[in-house]
Write a protein that binds this DNA or RNA. Structure first.
Lengths: 196, 196, 196, 196
DNA sequence: CAGTAATCGAGACGGTACGTCCTGTCTTGAT
DNA sequence: ATCAAGACAGGACGTACCGTCTCGATTACTG
């Protein structure tokens, strides 16, 4: 008994791209709370059914619209490695903090985070598809540092990264403080002190 | 020409309480995404206008429903002080992590956090009204530790608390890992290493 | 256990009238096949729900829009009575035939007839509410003729009226022939011959 | 530049028949109002385009589905001729009335009539293709009666038939009374009195 | 202690968006 | 070339809620 699922080979790439782009634009323009499927369809020049055919929820569309964005840039991610771990991490964290200053970039990711908080399955998918490659790149840099004797051999790298990034993410999401270079540097210094 | 703002002295306490309780119940039952003003009104046995008269948005109702909850328990908050800072912090963090296991408690606070992420003004109000007293209590304990020489005199207590709590909050919101005693302990240990 | 039916006393007369008028206008303008609830609501300046709250189907709205029309004109219907039955019936049938020439009048009634053909319950309601008073007026005229000895005492008046009107209705609905005075006269003459 | 009209010689007879049968079945099952092209296509095991290629509207399909039905039975239609006109007409009218008792037969013809009322062109086509041969057969019987001196020489046969059939059709379409033998007989008797 | 002015429960209202269904067109691959 | 299949843009459906707006019916101050 075949489930009546759509035929992926016949999917319109033109529509898919238009929907994803329209979604990102609309989040930046009107905000996530006022984002509607109808507006996405209208902006993309697409029937609503074409959205419902391929995505199960608004969250899923938002998710894919971010995913599509990062797939452009990616390929293989790599962190800088000058040999100076502290300096390299500061470079990365400063850059990350700076990105959040641009509303056109920030708004969709904020929207995505709200979806992830609301929907555990989507959050799991996010970790697998989007976060994992980035996390792996970060871990590669940390392992290099470990081999260079700059980190203890038994350092829990996942915990290290949670420590490094969670305060930044929290400040950004709740707007509870400035995301400046000083803060980025403080995060790196404290984290390196915590995991010597 | 008088501004037509409602007369607080005539407000029905019965209705206010019923609305706040209904809100918390409904979030726990159907989730925040499916929470509607009409459902709150119906559950509380209240006219919709009574909600709109006293609250400006759904977020504000959710906010107050949490506030009301914490006002029951509070009075004056105080952290344990056995003289052993690490032990005391572990006690507190373990308790905090444990609270998140109860959906009836967790769901409304998760909902509130989504509102805070979406609405900067509400987030500011939250910090002022709800977070501040708790933060102050935590800082009092840290200052006591500082005076006992267990923390450096120049420790930035706000940053200290961000480091201590942000990883916990993040794991909880995104369900990215277990909130067990081991994790709570690791956070305390790492934070104390970071701020010697 | 009370069914959640709307409170008739609070119904907006303004909306009711606007909906009924818009319906008639739209049928005349775009035809019954292209009549939509959304267009009625838009034209009437009314929410769709206000239509769905008070009418169970598009047919019911069309029905009421005709009913409202005839309630304006009615009061008490009476056929002419000059003493000459044939002449009086010809006057009435010629007038009826002539009415069908005006699209603004004809189109809504055609639409109504399609609904009656499709929906037995609506047809019954139609007979009770709209047709009966008119039929009674016609029968009164026929009874007068019977008492004047112009019709047999045992004439089946309902059958008489079916014979008189059915061919006219059929020609109009199916556009199978002209609705002119000659036809009207021929119907009267033949019917009077059939029921001497 | 050739007009892109389909090549009739390559038409699939299997599909044509399946579509027409499916149409009749579906009208009987779900009613005309809920009849959809997609359902016809699915039931017939046919692509939607195959329907749109060969028919211009839903009404046209319904029309042909009835036409196909009558083409099975026809060939050459002839009314009974026992020499007794009244008796023969009663036989025919009773049979006609009886046919309307079967929903599987009645529903598609009711649907067709709704289309004819809505669409003048289709009504004309109906008269030409479906009604004419039947009407001709009836007229042949009436002419025979005329020659036998049972009808006046100047009787308008078309009007005669309208008189005979319109009340029956009307009762059936609007379900305004029983279609029994007594009614059929009364129609014949009255009509013969009207056209002596 | 009646008069009166507010809040209250209730829910109708004009709207917006939802998610579904169907239309009529178009594309693909098989026959 | 037609066919089965079904994706597509579009539009209407009927439903759910939104936030505003009347309605009486309490309810609590005020004259």
């Amino acid at each position: 008994m075949a489930v009546n699922s759509p035929d992926r080979t016949r999917r319109s790439e033109r529509s898919r791209t238009a929907i994803l782009t329209a979604t990102r634009e609309l989040i930046a323009e009107v905000g996530y709370a006022k984002l509607t499927i109808e507006a996405i369809a209208a902006r993309a020049g697409v029937g609503k059914q074409t959205i419902y055919r391929w995505w199960s929820s608004k969250g899923a569309v938002v998710f894919d619209s971010i995913l599509a964005l990062s797939e452009q840039t990616d390929g293989e991610v790599a962190l800088p490695d000058t040999g100076d771990l502290a300096a390299d991490l500061k470079t990365v964290l400063r850059a990350t903090a700076a990105e959040f200053a641009d509303p056109a970039f920030e708004a969709p990711i904020r929207a995505l985070n709200m979806e992830l908080i609301a929907d555990p399955e989507l959050a799991e998918l996010y970790r697998e598809k989007l976060e994992k490659p980035v996390t792996e790149a970060k871990k590669r840099r940390l392992r290099a540092a470990r081999e260079a004797g700059q980190l203890a051999a038994d350092t829990d790298l996942d915990l290290f990264l949670e420590f490094l990034y969670a305060p930044l993410t929290q400040r950004w999401l709740l707007r509870s403080g400035p995301l400046d270079d000083a803060f980025a540097d403080a995060l790196v210094d404290a984290t390196l002190r915590a995991f010597p």
